[in-house]
Design a protein around this nucleic acid. Structure first.
Lengths: 188, 188
DNA sequence: GGCTTTCAGGTGACGTTGTCAACTCTGTAG
DNA sequence: CTACAGAGTTGACAACGTCACCTGAAAGCC
């Protein structure tokens, strides 16, 4: 049996999926509430039953994406037998992969100003990251190293996306920058 | 005497200034061609005499901002007696200052995909930067170092803007990250 | 069971925006 | 002096976000 709340939850998810799909395919301008509703099989006004406005819908998508990254980081962090530095590298590589596979979503995740919902989800993804760094460089240095690593990879991603970081111009790319930064960490 | 081409050029500049002002004050959503025209003292259709469409106007603003940064970097690079590493630091600090004083403009400068006009102006700003680095680490390493430095500072700026890089969470800030990265360079 | 409430969803309407076509007007070239 | 080019205006249109109002059915209560 399908209760009403179940149906509503399904619609909400359909709206999120439709909006994320439109974002991936056509960028932010392609995400119109009318088209989102149409793809989800509802009318143009229906989204307002689940989200305050368009911005609220986009925020929910961003938070969802951060939570997916957090799950991925958590799985990596709990992986037994994997060298800690490789875990750090893999977490950053996960960011890079998301940015390349779904550039518009990645940009949405970093859209200022980030609301509390997004900040909390992002913090959740950074928990395992800082924990791994603590094992390598100690608690006191973990945050400082983390900020440098995260900034460096995030910046390389942004410059690559805008076309400023090309191998032709800089003789390197985002992957190498990631490796260079991770190389600053002690091994094991 | 005021020729017609002079008057047209003045209108074009007025449109650019008006749009840049609206961008600084109210973000990208505040930049409407109607309001731009009104501020420039012309009608809503006038911008189409100087720019192909809204995007073209925004692109021109981004290119103009990159050129201003390029001028600043060029002045720094030609500064006699200043230690080369300080020049590099000052150039990066100039980026950081722009990002803090005019965050919406900074974001526009890095908006993907960057057209040829923007990429060329950006490259112009990076010329003095790479030249200074060549003096410090040699031609072969200058580009790789430059990419890491630029990525790191750009990423820190982005995370600071979105509220993700706070001293509360990371025990550091963009200024310290900048210093840390510049500290990787040999002195003098 | 019947009644009332609640709430997902639909529809009409409005203001705003980007954009185009048609028009006016005025320096400028021939 | 005439024709032209081009800056500027205005009317119009479609698309969009959003709101107010309406509908219908599930859910809770007696």
């Amino acid at each position: 049996m399908i209760t009403r709340t179940e149906s509503a939850a399904a619609t909400r998810r359909a709206l999120l999926d439709a909006a994320a799909g439109l974002l991936d395919e056509g960028g932010p301008e392609a995400v119109t509430l009318r088209e989102v509703g149409a793809r989800a099989g509802v009318s143009r006004g229906a989204p307002y039953r689940h989200f305050a406005d368009k911005d609220d819908l986009l925020t929910a998508i961003a938070a969802q994406a951060w939570n997916a990254l957090a799950d991925q980081a958590g799985t990596l962090g709990a992986h037994p037998g994997m060298p800690t530095r490789d875990k750090v590298r893999a977490m950053l590589a996960g960011m890079l992969a998301t940015a390349r596979e779904r550039p518009h979503l990645y940009r949405l995740m970093h859209r200022p100003p980030a609301g509390p919902e997004v900040l909390q989800a992002a913090a959740r993804s950074q928990g395992p990251f800082v924990a791994a760094l603590s094992d390598l460089v100690g608690d006191t240095q973990a945050h400082r190293f983390g900020a440098v690593l995260l900034s460096g990879v995030h910046g390389a991603i942004g410059m690559e996306a805008s076309g400023q970081l090309t191998r032709d111009k800089w003789k390197t790319d985002a992957d190498e920058i990631l490796d260079t930064l991770v190389g600053l960490l002690p091994a094991s």
